[in-house]
Amino acid sequence: MIHILVADDDTHIRELLKHYLQAEGFVVFEAADGEEASAWITKEQIHLAVVDVMMPNKDGFQLCEEIRKYYDFPVILLTAKDQLSDKEKGFSVGTDDYLTKPFEPKELLFRIKALLRRYQMVNAEKIELNGTVIDRKSYEVTCNNKLLMLPMKEFELLTQLASFPGRIFSREELIQLVWGVDFEGDDRTVDVHIKRLRERFSNRTDDFSIKTVRGVGYKLEVTKK
């Protein structure tokens, strides 16, 4: 059974989401604030969290940051705000998706199911992007049935982006995830490696593309075929 945590101080929102999620066969845990949500995470195996930004005791940004630091499951942030700066902050602390209130419960369900599929891909040894296959165990990439060996940092960067298709990563996040917190260079290193990856694959395949999100960072998009 898939366990979904719904953290929102609005009782009506929690009840609404519980109704839709349970109808889809999910087990739902409710939290009225960030502290209660943290308690559920330590007690139960949570597979995905739907988190309101504006909560007492611990807000959604803080909770999302905590989840990213200690756990590995997807997070969807809910907010009444539709400002680009709020979205940027949400993605910078590690949210996988962002939905502005008011929203259609069915749209949230679509996003939940998409994220769960993506995270199942992460647990696999091989990531498939149409005809491009990334083998996390052998550190090999097969593109159109041809083996392509990448320098280690390029491989790790591609794997990080491909593990979460559609998720925006800031340059700072990618530096920490790929190069480590002790890296002494600057975030232009990310730009250089992204450019090299684009050059390597541009003439080989259209299975995926690495998009620049202006002012934020990068995301990998899988081509629909």
Rank of each mutant, 00 (worst) to 15 (best):
A7Q: 04
I13A: 14
E15V: 13
L21T: 02
E24M: 12
D33G: 05
D33H: 14
A39G: 11
A39M: 14
I41G: 00
E44K: 15
H47L: 03
A49L: 07
V51P: 06
D52P: 13
M55H: 06
M55T: 09
L63K: 00
R68V: 00
D82H: 13
Q83F: 13
Q83Y: 10
K87M: 14
F91A: 02
G94F: 01
D97Y: 14
P102E: 13
F103M: 10
E104I: 12
K106L: 10
L108I: 06
F110W: 10
R111G: 07
K113D: 04
R118T: 12
Q120K: 15
K126I: 15
L129F: 06
T142P: 07
T142D: 07
C143D: 05
K146C: 13
L147F: 08
L148S: 07
M152C: 09
E156T: 05
L157R: 01
L158V: 00
Q160S: 06
S163V: 02
R167E: 01
R167A: 02
Q176D: 15
W179S: 14
E184A: 08
E184V: 02
V190Y: 00
D191Q: 09
D191V: 15
H193M: 05
K195C: 02
K195T: 15
Y218W: 08
L220G: 01
